[in-house]
Design a binder for these strands. Structure first.
Length: 478
RNA sequence: CGGGGUGUAGCGCAGAUGGUAGCGCGCAUGGUUCGGGUCCAUGAGGCCGUGGGUUCAAAUCCCGCCACUCCGACCA
């Protein structure tokens, strides 16, 4: 997309990608900083994006039989400590409540960094029989993790997310649930957020604290770094044993159920920004854009223009689109820049000249292409153009990922490729932690996943040369 | 948590050798303009991040703290 830069306030992404990102976050009015480090204010426009994502996922969760619940925000220390790996993973970043009013508490309370322990404790009370299973719960909430360095969307100490927690009679059913929910996330990313994903599972080193297996979808950002965009965990019966969750099965044997959890956070909005944004600002996929079409009256004082613009808004709203018009007295040029910055996928201009011709002009945020649309075709052409934008966005992101995915047969080669191009590097791997550490230490890359789509590149591990039977994707991650 | 940078009006910045603060944009009001950030006029707006110290006097010098930010380590 060869567009000149139209918004001076945003740092060019080629100059400083990180600065570009924070510029977009604030200039597009998505977030504001709060008085506490790492706690961000989601402004209406930013929150609306989250609400749209919520809407898609929540509908899907419910279709698949999940129910929403609300768990407490505080976890007693003793509860958090019941599953050993889990505590070890989260303890370093827990924040604690130690006072109630002016009195010290008998037991300190952790502000939830995630709610596995709460769900488990609850289930240990209410699950008795195989007839109680499966339990398929989800909650929309925020969690707190005391991160050292923070950035809007990508790493907040508090962030909004959903966490799904399910309990099943059999391991097989739980594994199926885990995989199914990863697929829900993949579908969200690819078909709504226009972000191509790599599906796979995490290595032991990268998996969730307490999980038997963690499945992930990995996306590539515009700067060729990786973003873990959603994870789904299979816990086996480890938590159930730790928390004493038992049920009587059909043969009246006391059994431990098998568990899953899966989550997707507002971090995905950071992913949307870094996947699709450009030097004019945000670019939002039509499927989740709070404003899909911005209608701009040109020469608004001329007779009939404002009325016509309002008529377009009404017609497009009736057609089921999220539409707004800007009747402010800012100049057209100012408005163009403003709504480009905010990533509105489609701009519709209507002026005296258009009115004479019985048309309006639609401008695509992605390509900048201007299309004359006869007013008689408004309700069919505008949705088509939004579909075009959605497709263009996916194609562009896909091309970025494909052109920055490489094969390496040695650590040295992987390192060189990463340094020169960035992106995803595929290699064979023997499964040894030492090799994974070596890749981190020497090439600065972590294993992103062991993709479902395996390729046999070689017979031996690219790092140590020992026999290897699986392919890993490596990358520098956010 | 280690290393660097920054903190003065809503935003971006200027304020040398200490003497009680200024510019651009934005904002408000009126007019003007309107197919890529119109033009003009008038006006409002500042415990100079915070706490201490030095001094007759601190935005300015010294020390602490806090926040933001970048680079590492850790993580969604």
């Amino acid at each position: 997309m060869a567009k000149e830069k139209k918004v001076e306030q945003i740092t060019d992404m080629e100059v400083d990608f990180a600065q570009w990102f924070t510029d977009v976050c604030t200039k597009a009015e998505l977030v504001d900083y709060s008085g506490v480090k790492g706690l961000f204010i989601l402004r209406p426009y930013g929150y609306a994006i989250w609400e749209n994502i919520q809407g898609i996922l929540d509908r899907k969760f419910k279709e698949l039989g999940h129910e929403n619940v609300s768990m407490p925000m505080l976890i007693p220390e003793s509860l958090l400590q019941k599953e050993k790996d889990h505590v070890e993973g989260f303890a370093p970043e827990c924040a604690w409540v130690t006072m109630g009013g002016s009195e010290p508490l008998q037991e300190k309370l952790c502000i939830r960094p995630t709610s596995e322990t709460l769900f488990c404790d609850h289930w240990s009370h209410v699950v008795h029989s195989w007839r109680d299973l499966p339990m398929k719960y989800n909650q929309w909430c925020s969690v707190l993790r005391w991160e050292k360095t923070t950035r809007p969307f990508l790493r907040g100490r508090e962030f909004l997310w959903q966490e799904g927690h399910t309990l099943h009679a059999t391991a097989q059913e739980a594994v199926e649930e885990t995989l199914q929910m990863l697929e829900v996330y993949a579908d969200l990313c690819e078909n709504y957020l226009a972000m191509p994903v790599i599906r796979g599972n995490k290595t032991d080193k990268e998996k969730f604290a307490g999980a038997e297996n963690t499945y992930t979808i990995e996306c590539m950002m515009h700067d060729h770094k990786a973003l873990q965009s959603g994870t789904s965990h299979y816990f086996g019966d480890g938590f159930a044993r730790a928390f004493g969750i038992t049920f009587s099965d059909r043969e009246n044997k006391l059994s431990y159920p098998h568990q899953t959890s899966w989550g997707l956070s507002t971090r995905i909005i950071g992913g949307i920004i870094m996947t699709h944004g450009d030097n004019s600002g945000l670019v939002l996929p039509p499927a989740i854009a709070p404003i899909q079409v911005i209608v701009l009256p040109i020469a608004m004082h001329k007779p009939g223009v404002a009325d016509k613009a309002q008529e377009l808004v009404d017609r497009l709203k009736s057609a089921g689109l999220r539409v707004k018009a800007d009747f402010s007295d800012n100049s057209p040029g100012w408005k163009y820049a403003q709504y480009e910055m905010k990533g509105v996928p489609l701009r519709v201009e209507i002026g005296p000249r258009d009115m004479e011709n019985g048309q309006c002009v639609a401008v695509l945020r992605t390509s900048g292409e201007k299309v004359s649309v006869p007013l008689s075709d408004l309700e069919t052409r505008i949705p088509e153009l939004l579909e075009t934008v959605q497709k263009q966005m996916f194609e562009k992101a896909k091309a970025n990922m494909d052109s920055h995915t490489f094969v390496a047969r040695s650590l040295e080669e992987a390192k060189a490729l990463q340094e020169e191009h960035g992106g995803f590097i595929k290699t064979m791997w023997c499964g040894d932690l030492a090799c994974e550490m070596a890749m981190k230490d020497q090439a600065g890359m972590s294993s992103r996943c062991i993709p479902y789509a395996q390729e046999h590149l070689d017979d031996c591990c690219a790092i140590c040369g020992k026999p290897a039977d699986r392919m890993v994707i490596w990358g520098v991650a956010y």
